[in-house]
Design a protein around this nucleic acid. Structure first.
Lengths: 167, 167
DNA sequence: ACTGAAATGGCGCGACC
DNA sequence: GGTCGCGCCATTTCAGT
């Protein structure tokens, strides 16, 4: 039986380790142990427990999107025609199968969904939309905001009780 | 002198490796080599080149946000009073210094910025906004959409020329 | 120039205190 | 939680293509 995340998060070493591996996912256990002030074995055991608990979903290499040619980020709000089981299921299946769509959230407000989409350029986005609309039934309306600049784009989460830097 | 990313991306092994490390950031060089059909040394050299080129910005452990107590995702659109150098700089500095704000983009449309914010719960968001507004000058308006459900949340980028799954 | 075999030194992982 | 040790892995060297 694997440990509960709530138990794990009581441990100050665990909290520190999580902080480090969020920034340096490929750090060695030895270096991680040293940076939190432990010897390697207890550090390794904690990392194993953290992984088994599902707190760490996966490790990922984070790419420079511009260096792979994805210069354009779009936020598209989507409204569906009707919210029948089928329309919703088909739309979400298509979203999940489309790698250009990085995020999709059901949101409050005028639209049903908010999508974050990466594209090489606006022309590609135009072609993408045409293709996506063809494939998907039941999309009533789409409204897109173009990202002009990336101010911040993080994956690191703040652990509860750590306090914000806003003092 | 390190290699250019455009040169690296010509190599089919490199492209395959990038695909793998985006999903398994902590994979061993040996396993990576095997999965792309190389022996360890050339695979290791490629990984080194990819890292030196800046194509991989960092490696990150991706956490389950709900397991660390961040149950709530908000998308807040922010408009500033005036777009003077100072107001913009101060706002963006505050955004960058605030770990609850994961993303911040300058966007087209009615608002100036779109923020993605993780919070433990709506009450915490209310307190957060009050605190953030106090600290920051020049915010004219904020409009928040609450995320009701997470359909997709990826970090993996599609390499150009790979073709979408939308066939 | 780039590959893979071999060598070596360091690290992950487990046993034990 | 730390010490020890085995075996695997990262990294270098080198010879072959």
């Amino acid at each position: 039986m694997s440990k509960e995340t709530s138990d794990l998060l009581q441990d100050r070493y665990v909290r520190h380790m999580i902080d480090v591996v969020q920034r340096e996912g490929r750090i060695t256990v030895q270096a991680l142990a040293e940076s939190v002030g432990l010897s390697a074995p207890p550090c390794w055991r904690r990392l194993r427990d953290i992984e088994e608990s599902g707190l760490i979903v996966r490790y990922a290499a984070i790419l420079d999107r511009k260096k792979v040619g994805l210069h354009c980020c779009m936020f598209t709000q989507v409204s569906l025609e009707k919210h029948s089981e089928n329309v919703v299921a088909e739309f979400e299946r298509a979203v999940r199968a489309t790698p250009e769509i990085l995020e999709c959230w059901v949101i409050t407000g005028d639209a049903d969904y908010l999508l974050k989409i990466y594209m090489p350029d606006p022309t590609a986005f135009d072609r993408f939309l045409a293709r996506f609309m063809l494939k998907i039934n039941g999309v009533r309306q789409m409204k897109t905001a173009v990202a002009l600049r990336e101010v911040k784009n993080e994956t690191r989460l703040q652990l509860p009780g750590a306090g914000t830097e806003l003092a």
